[in-house]
Structures are given as structure tokens and as C-alpha cells.
Design a protein around this nucleic acid. Structure first.
Length: 937
RNA sequence: GCUUCGGUGGCGGAAUUGGUAGACGCGCUGGAUUCAAAAUCCAGUUCUUUCGAGAGUGUGGGUUCGAUUCCCACCCGAAGUACCA
């Protein structure tokens, strides 16, 4: 029997599990190395071949680092709270906990078949109460902290209270923008407890406030900005509308600048950093204050172009701006009111899809230009966003295309402040290549100087300041869902109170149904045991609420990103019950050295978790600021979908490229009924779905061909390839190698099962190096020079490639190596032993088998990675290509130790030179030792 | 629109600081083995060709003895983002 992958893989998977081979200790003299994958959400569909791509890469790297003598932490867990389990619960009434557990065990089975070296003793699940106890604890920490903009870090709220008691909030507010009303220390002391609580909420990092949220009626919950794609919910693609609600938020905006700066210190993919930069959206500009005629109120605007301030001809407010109703004149009230109502009704999606049409109304009020006291009409329009800046803009039609279009549409004057620039057709929006004119004291200046002078003058008048604005919004932290972490919060006089740490976790109550209550409360409102007894310090029946000792609990739960924002710290010490991780464990493992996962989390998890770690770092709860030094984004493996042509309204299907004068529509068919030549198994299809049972299929030239298209791999597209199937047919080692061989790890690439035979036969050839007719057959003599050369060439290449995460080229290197050794008929034990260790990170099962057959008792896991010896690949003579003017003509054998001059002398003596010179004169000979000779003529 | 990444055979993809373009694998063609098939092995496989050679890495230009690689302009594709003032 030759290479029996089934038996081998079973044997070694059992061996690793029985011997706890991959269990890792927190106490070790070895240097540490931490390799982590983004933990999966255990969905009901199970894994397809795309999922393990990143896990295979990280596993190869982990196994490589073990061979290199590191103490490697390579854990895995589950992000097990989330929407799909809850949607399923709504449909079936089954507890999400049950279905989640089933999904997890299916995931585990699939993962185990691939031979990963995870330390499963450290498994974590975000939905376990021992885990979310600490998520709740950290939420309390966020609640009990405020952001000190002067020191630029989070500090305990107790210290803020001390400051308020001593000096009020004057100094604090001076350095932050969303400052609240000023009060003195005396006033602070005079406030009631209720008022104090309310004021403090304005400073806490976790706070409760009434805000505009993205409400998804279909899902019955709010969503964060990153959970909305194209104005529709990421999950399910439902409509999202704006709505005012009282919600928990996290003050991530306080960390905008640090999150931006921190990108410099981490080795993350450039495109991903770019996405985070855009999301944070820093823009440097000024805050300008415009007086409003006949009112005390001022309009604050944010602008990046103060230099164009003399080009302002009107002001525009967002319809939601609270000032609008106040300043609108009587005769304009009706049209303004109608406009506000109309735009409030529009969904985000409508607003977005309707970018081009111009709309707005005049309020009848006027603002006053800060420098020349000109009257500027105040308009409202929904091209101004309430959520960005101050929800108001100073409109400069000559310099901004939107303002320009608006002015043209409503016949508002356009003033040209750019010297000799034509603005009759469009605005001049460039920041360079112009000189200001018509601009009073700014005349003759360029962008940079104009900007500086305008800000200075505004400063003098106390009408404007330099200001940096960020797009990054505070993150909404409440979800109206069941399957998430409950808040450790109860309400006393409608003000939130945190449940003390000693009584955590606050466990999720059971409910009889998972939908919102009749009166629209979140699902937790269905529980009749969700009240907090402040005497017994435990959850009690709702009927006991008396608002004296028993209080109502928070009904919302936390969002999916809560649990995933800190899980990398928990792996270090996952069973700790007195702390989220011990100081010793945190100090030993510090941070993740290599983090592998998809770039789709760029502006979600990967931003939130950075923020969360900064916060923990500020409170000195973790020893490092950045939790992941290096990040690798694995690309998606795409499916190769199959379609057949159906005549619209009939059950007639046609082969591809058939010519028929009828209307076709494309119908997905399961790829398992299509062979590698794109031919459809019609009989199989008939049994697949009833609609095909009696359908007619018209072939072309005796064949029924499908149309192929590359799409995302998904159950609904019937293009899913299951890794279990591949493991059955070819084995896990082949699958691992093939997934790596497909192409660069970070690139998206289509799956094509046909190509897998290449890696499969590679493993068979590797097996046959040491086996003859099923028996071990090796020689123990001294290895030949040639075989050593092949081996060391491979060691060098493979090690370089692993360090560059270029696994596709290292698989190629192995193939070349085995092919060459095979043609040498090399079955030398020493060579095979070394090669086996080298290959073991990629194909661990077969390597363990060969390794043990060669007489080794220990697992190959902790052997030493082979040392590359350059002596073996040294060549005394090399074939040099000789080219004329860069065109290769012939080859010449020369000594590799020759200097450039010696090479030149040698080439001059070669008789072939004459022939190729063909009478031309040599101008120059370029020789690079070991590489190339070029003759310029 | 903006930002980022990419464009190389029939296909997936290689190519160190600019130095033999197409490694490796799939597919295809021919051959060996076989009663036959599968499996395996060997040879070939960018295109054109008068078999000398010529052209060739999205297009056009530039730098260089020499460009897939560097520079400029453009075309196409993917991802992200968007009335962001």
C-alpha cells in the first residue's frame, strides 16, 4: 500500500490530541511567539474551503516558529454571540445557546480534520459567562473613566470628580470640543446627585445619551456605521432609517488622533491602514462663528478653506440643525417645515441614491460676515449632513462644486475670489495654482498663506479658531437583541448604576420568545426575571421592582464587537477567574506577533480592538499599547458558480452558446452536478430540485454546457466546496498544500478543484522517496553532493518564503526539490529526514509518519529547523549568459570566483565572439560576477 | 468623484537591488507501460516563422548597454469610500 493519507492523518491527529502536543505553557525559558487567527463566528453552514486559508497559513507559521525554538501560543476560539443564531431562534424557538453549541462542535470537527496545531485547552467563547464576565467588567471600567485631552489618556472618573470639586470644569472643557456647560466648584457642590450623575455622563467613555441612530426596523435593532453597507444592513440587506433613541455609546472619538498616529507603529497592510485613516477622516481646518441678524445665536461652521472666506455668499444648514426652527421667519416657516419633514422621512439609501438632485429652502434669516458685515442668506438643504462638523457650512460657490451647483440652481450670487480664474462653468476647487483677489486683506495670497492669515484675524476677533475635525463617530454600544452580553446596569431614578464587580457576571436570562415585546421593548423585556435586588445583589423577579431596593435592569445587550475587542488578552490566561488575565501572563505574552484575518474587519473589529487596547493600556491593565504587531490579510477564496439558461416563464433549459430567439434568464445550479469540462449531469440535477424533475434540457453538439462565473463562495450560490470532501478524497495535507499553492495569501482567487491533483501527486512522490512497494526503503550512506545541493537550495528558499508569508512559492520549491531528488533516485535517510522536518509545517501528518518510520520516537513538532549551509550550494563554475546590447546570444562556462576583469578577459578570448559581433566594434563589456555579461556594441 | 491595489501563456500564478520573462502546478499534445482503462513515467507546450530568426509582460512615450521591474500620460479591472464642507 502506498501513501495512505486516511490512516496516517487519523493516526497523527489522535496522537497529537492524546499527547497534548500543542499545549503551551506560560512558564518557559524559550522566547515567546504568539500567532493568532481572527476567531470565527460559528455559523450553521459550517466551513467551506475558503475559511481555512488563513488558519493554514497561521498554522504553518506557528509550526515553523516551534521548529525555530520558540514557545508558541497558537489558540483558537469562537465569536459566539451574534445575529444569525438569534434569527434562527426567532424562526424555530430554539435557544441560541443550543444551536451555537451544535455549530461549534461541527466547526471543531471540521477544523480537527485539517491538522491544526491549536492549543485547544485555551479555547474561548464570547458567549460563555466566564468570558463575558470580563467584557462586562471592562464596560464598567469604560463607564468609570473619562478622557483627559490634556494628558491624552483615559483616567478614572474619580479623579474627574475631584477636579470638579476643586475647580469646576473650566480647565477640562478648554481642551475638549464637546464640552458641556461651564460650572465652578461651588456650583458643583450645589448640584443634586441626579444632576451630578447627568453631568458625569457627558464625560464618561461609556455613556448614555439620546442620539440619532441607524435603526433597522426589519431586524428591530440599531446598527453601527460599519454594519451598514450601501445604506442597507450588512446582515440581511434590510433598510436602515435614522431615528432618535437613548442608547449606550463608547467615546471612541476621543482616541481619533491616537488611533491615527498609532498606525505608524504597526506592521499592518498598507491598504488596511489607508482604510482606517479614511474612516477616522482627519481634516485640518477652522471653526468660524457667524452672527445671525436679529438673534443672539451664532452659526458655527467647520471649514478647511478659511482662505476663501471672502467668497461666501450664503450659509447652508442641515435640516436637522436645531437652530433652523428658531431663526426661520414667519413667511418661510411652512416651506421650511415641509422640507424638514420630507428629508426626515427619506431613508439613508434614498438620500444616497439621490445625490445629484438639488433641493433646499430659504429660511428668511441672514448671517453676518465676520469681516465685512455683509448679509448672507441662510438656507437649509440636505446636502449638509447633520452628523459631520456642526451641521452647517459657509457656502463658497466659486470654490466648491456643491455650493456652486446650489447657487446656480437657486440664483444666488457667485463671487469670484480667484484672480484670473474662469468660473463661468464650474467652481475652482484646487488648493494650489491660484492667487486670491476680491478678498480684502487676503488679496494676493496663496492657499497656505491665506489660510494662516485668515485664522489669525479670526482669532483676533474671537470669531474663529484653528480646528481639527474627525469623521470618526462615537460607537453606538446598545443592541435591541437577545443573543449578546447583557449590560451590568440597573436604573435608579432613570439614571444608570453599575452592578459591582463582585456580583459579575450578570448572566443572560431565559426568555420565552426572542422578538421585541408587544410594546416595542428589546427581547430581554420578555423575561420576567430581570430586576436587580440591591440588598441580595442578585437578579430577581420583575414583580419585585419597588424602586427602593429592587430596580429595573437594562434591556439592551452589547454589540458583537464587544467580546472580540479584547479576546487576544484572554487566550494568555483563559481560565483565570479573578482577573481577565494575570499580570504574569500578560507580561510574558505581551502582544500578538502575527495576526491573520480578513480585511473586511478594517473599520470594525480591527479599529474597535485597537481602541479597546489603548484604553486598557491607559489604565495600566495591559503592558502594551498595540496588541498586534503584524497583521496578515488573507484573501477570499472565491467560488466558481455554474449557471444554466432558462427560457423565461418555462421549464426549458438550454446549453451554453446555443442560439435561440427567446428570452433567457440565468439559474444557479449546484456545482456538484458539473464536471471539470463544464458539462452538466442532467440526471443528477433532476433529482436535486423538483423544478428540474420534468424540465427539458436542450444540448448543443451532444453536450449540455453550463456558464461559469467567479463569485463569493456561499450556500445560496450553490458553489460551496466542502473541505471534508477534499479531506476524504485527497487528505488534509494535500488540501493544506493546495490552498497555499493557489496563489499569494493576501490575494482573492477562485477555487478550482481540478488543480489539486498536482499537490496530491507531489505528496505521493515525497512518500515514494523513502518507500518502495509500501515498505520503507532508505540508505544510510553519506549523502551525495548533488542531493545536498538540492536540499540546501530548498532550505534557503523555503525559510525566506515563510518569513515573507510567500507560501505559494515555498510549495513550488518543495515540488522542485522532490522532482530533482526523484530523478537522482536519492533515498538517502539523512536527506529525507531533513526534508521531512522542513516540510512538516506544511504537511504535518505525512511528515510525522515518515519521521517516525525513520526511527524517531519524538513528534516532529519540536525538532530543529534545518540549518542552511551555503557551502553545499557553492558552484565552482557557472554558466553565464552572454548578451549583446541586452539580447542574449550564447552561454559560456566560467569560474564563479572570477572577478569582473577576469570574466572580461575570458570572454574576449572566446571564439564565438567574432560570429556574434559580426564586424561591429565593442564599446563596453559589462560583467557582474555570478550573474551576467553584456557586450555593448 | 476620491483613495488603495492590480493588469504577465488556454488557466492559477513565478521572476532577489533593473540582468536568460513565463519557475511550479493545472490543462492540452505526443510517446512508453496496459487486452483496455485508471495510475505512473518520458518528451513537448507564449505567439509568428521561409526554421535563419523575429515579436512579446494592458496602451503610448521616456531613462538605460539592458525595463515585467524605475519615471510620465492614458485605458481596463478589483476593493474601500463618498453631498465630509
Amino acid at each position: 500500500m502506498s501513501y495512505n493519507f486516511k490512516q496516517i492523518e487519523n493516526k497523527w491527529q489522535r496522537y497529537w490530541s492524546d499527547n497534548n502536543t500543542f499545549k503551551v505553557n506560560n512558564n518557559s525559558d524559550l522566547p515567546k511567539f504568539y500567532v493568532m487567527d481572527m476567531f470565527p463566528y460559528p455559523s450553521g453552514a459550517g466551513l467551506h474551503v475558503g475559511h481555512p486559508l488563513g488558519y493554514i497559513a497561521s498554522d504553518i507559521f506557528s509550526r515553523y516558529k516551534r521548529l525555530k525554538g520558540f514557545n508558541v501560543l497558537h489558540p483558537q476560539g469562537y465569536d459566539s454571540f451574534g445575529l444569525p443564531a438569534e434569527q434562527y431562534a426567532i424562526q424555530t424557538g430554539r435557544h441560541p445557546k443550543e444551536t451555537t453549541e451544535e455549530n461549534i462542535s461541527r466547526y471543531r470537527e471540521q477544523l480537527d480534520r485539517l491538522g491544526f496545531s491549536f492549543d485547544w485547552s485555551r479555547e474561548i467563547r464570547t458567549s460563555n459567562k466566564d468570558y463575558y464576565k470580563w467584557t462586562q467588567w471592562m464596560f464598567i471600567k469604560l463607564y468609570e473613566s473619562w478622557y483627559d485631552y490634556e494628558k491624552n489618556q483615559a483616567r478614572p472618573i474619580k479623579e474627574l470628580i475631584l477636579i470638579f470639586e476643586n475647580e469646576g470644569n473650566k480647565k477640562i472643557n478648554a481642551c475638549c470640543d464637546d464640552g458641556l456647560e461651564l460650572f465652578s466648584s461651588k456650583q458643583w457642590h450645589s448640584f443634586s446627585e441626579f444632576e451630578k450623575t447627568k453631568i458625569l455622563l457627558g464625560y464618561r467613555l461609556a455613556f448614555l445619551s439620546e442620539i440619532d441612530v441607524n435603526w433597522c426596523p426589519k431586524l428591530g435593532t440599531v446598527l453601527a456605521n460599519d454594519e451598514i453597507i450601501d445604506g442597507l444592513s450588512e446582515r440581511g440587506g434590510h433598510e436602515v432609517v435614522r431615528k432618535k433613541m437613548t442608547q449606550w455609546s463608547i467615546r471612541i472619538s476621543a482616541y481619533s488622533q491616537r488611533l491615527l498616529d498609532g498606525l505608524e507603529d504597526i506592521d499592518w497592510p498598507e491598504p488596511l491602514k489607508e482604510m482606517q485613516k479614511n474612516w477616522i477622516g482627519r481634516s485640518d481646518g477652522a471653526m468660524v462663528s457667524f452672527d445671525v441678524e436679529k438673534f443672539e445665536d451664532k452659526i458655527e461652521v467647520f471649514t478647511t478653506r478659511v482662505d476663501t472666506i471672502f467668497g461666501v455668499t450664503f450659509m447652508t444648514l442641515a435640516p436637522e440643525n436645531p437652530l433652523v426652527r428658531k431663526i426661520t421667519t414667519q413667511e418661510n416657516m411652512k416651506s421650511v417645515d415641509d422640507y424638514i419633514k420630507k428629508s426626515a422621512k427619506r431613508t439613508e439609501r434614498e438620500r444616497m441614491s439621490d445625490v445629484k438632485s438639488i433641493s433646499g429652502v430659504f429660511t428668511g434669516a441672514y448671517a453676518i460676515h465676520p469681516f465685512n458685515d455683509e448679509k448672507l442668506p441662510i438656507w437649509i438643504s440636505d446636502y449638509v449632513l447633520a452628523g459631520y462638523g456642526t451641521g452647517a457650512v459657509m457656502a463658497v460657490p466659486c470654490g466648491d462644486q456643491r455650493d456652486y451647483n446650489f447657487a446656480k440652481f437657486f440664483n444666488i450670487p457667485i463671487k469670484n475670489i480667484f484672480l484670473d480664474k474662469d468660473i463661468s462653468k464650474e467652481a475652482f476647487g484646487n488648493k494650489d495654482g491660484f492667487v486670491l483677489s476680491n478678498s480684502d486683506f487676503l488679496d494676493g495670497l496663496n492657499f497656505k498663506d491665506g489660510l494662516a492669515l485668515a485664522i489669525k484675524k479670526l482669532n483676533d476677533l474671537k470669531k474663529g479658531v484653528h480646528k481639527i475635525n474627525y469623521k470618526l463617530r462615537d460607537a453606538v454600544f446598545s443592541r435591541q437583541r437577545y443573543w449578546g452580553e447583557p449590560f451590568p446596569v440597573y436604573y435608579k431614578n432613570d439614571m444608570p448604576v453599575m452592578i459591582e464587580k463582585d456580583y459579575l457576571p450578570v448572566t443572560l436570562p431565559d426568555v420565552n420568545k426572542y422578538l421585541p415585546t408587544e410594546d416595542g421593548k428589546p427581547p430581554l423585556g420578555n423575561s420576567d426575571e430581570w430586576a436587580w435586588d440591591t440588598v441580595k445583589n442578585k437578579i430577581v423577579k420583575n414583580s419585585l421592582i419597588d424602586n427602593k431596593t429592587v430596580f429595573r435592569m437594562e434591556l439592551n445587550t452589547m454589540p458583537g464587537w464587544a467580546g472580540s475587542s479584547w479576546y487576544f488578552n484572554r487566550y494568555m490566561d483563559p481560565k483565570n477567574n479573578t482577573n481577565f488575565a494575570s499580570k504574569d501572563a500578560l507580561n510574558y505574552w505581551k502582544e500578538v506577533d502575527v495576526y491573520v484575518g480578513g480585511s473586511e474587519h478594517a473599520t470594525g473589529h480591527l479599529l474597535y480592538s485597537r481602541f479597546w487596547q489603548y484604553f486598557l493600556y491607559d489604565l495600566e491593565l495591559v503592558p502594551v499599547k498595540d496588541y498586534a504587531k503584524k497583521l496578515i490579510n488573507q484573501g477570499m477564496i472565491l467560488g466558481n458558480s455554474a449557471f444554466i439558461y432558462r427560457e423565461v416563464g418555462t421549464d426549458n433549459y438550454y446549453s451554453k452558446t446555443i442560439e435561440k430567439d427567446v428570452k433567457f434568464q440565468l439559474v444557479h445550479v449546484d456545482v456538484k452536478y458539473v464536471n471539470t469540462n463544464d458539462e452538466l449531469d442532467i440526471e443528477g440535477l433532476r433529482n436535486w430540485q423538483p423544478q428540474f424533475k420534468k424540465a427539458t434540457f436542450e444540448k448543443k453538439d451532444g453536450k449540455f454546457l453550463v456558464k461559469r462565473e467567479v463569485e463569493k463562495m456561499s450556500k445560496s450560490k450553490y458553489n460551496v466546496i466542502n473541505p471534508d470532501q477534499i479531506c476524504n478524497d485527497y487528505g488534509a495535507d494535500t488540501l493544506r498544500l493546495y490552498e497555499m499553492f493557489l496563489g499569494p495569501i493576501e490575494q482573492a482567487k477562485p477555487w478550482n478543484t481540478a488543480g489539486i491533483s498536482g499537490t496530491f501527486s507531489f505528496l505521493k512522490k515525497f512518500w515514494n522517496l523513502s518507500h518502495k512497494s509500501g515498505e520503507l526503503s532508505v540508505n544510510y550512506e553519506k549523502p551525495s553532493k548533488e542531493s545536498l545541493k538540492i536540499l540546501h537550495k530548498t532550505i534557503k528558499k523555503v525559510e525566506e518564503d515563510i518569513n515573507n508569508f510567500s507560501f505559494n512559492t515555498s510549495v513550488s520549491a518543495f515540488m522542485i526539490c522532490v522532482n530533482e531528488l526523484t530523478s537522482l533516485k536519492c533515498n538517502n535517510a539523512e536527506i529525507i529526514k531533513t526534508l521531512t522536518v522542513l516540510l512538516s509545517p506544511f504537511a504535518p501528518h505525512i511528515c510525522e509518519e515518515v519521521w517516525s518510520k525513520l526511527g524517531n520516537k519524538e513528534s516532529i513538532t519540536f525538532q530543529s529547523f534545518p540549518l542552511f549551509n551555503p557551502e553545499f550550494i557553492k558552484e565552482s563554475s557557472i554558466e553565464y549568459p552572454v548578451s549583446f546590447n541586452g539580447k542574449m546570444k550564447f552561454k559560456i562556462m566560467l569560474d564563479s570566483s572570477n572577478t569582473a576583469d577576469e570574466i572580461k578577459t575570458n570572454i574576449s578570448n572566446d571564439e564565438r565572439l567574432e560570429k556574434y559581433l559580426n564586424g561591429r566594434e565593442i564599446k563596453k563589456i559589462i560583467a557582474v560576477p555570478g550573474k551576467i555579461i553584456n557586450i555593448v556594441c
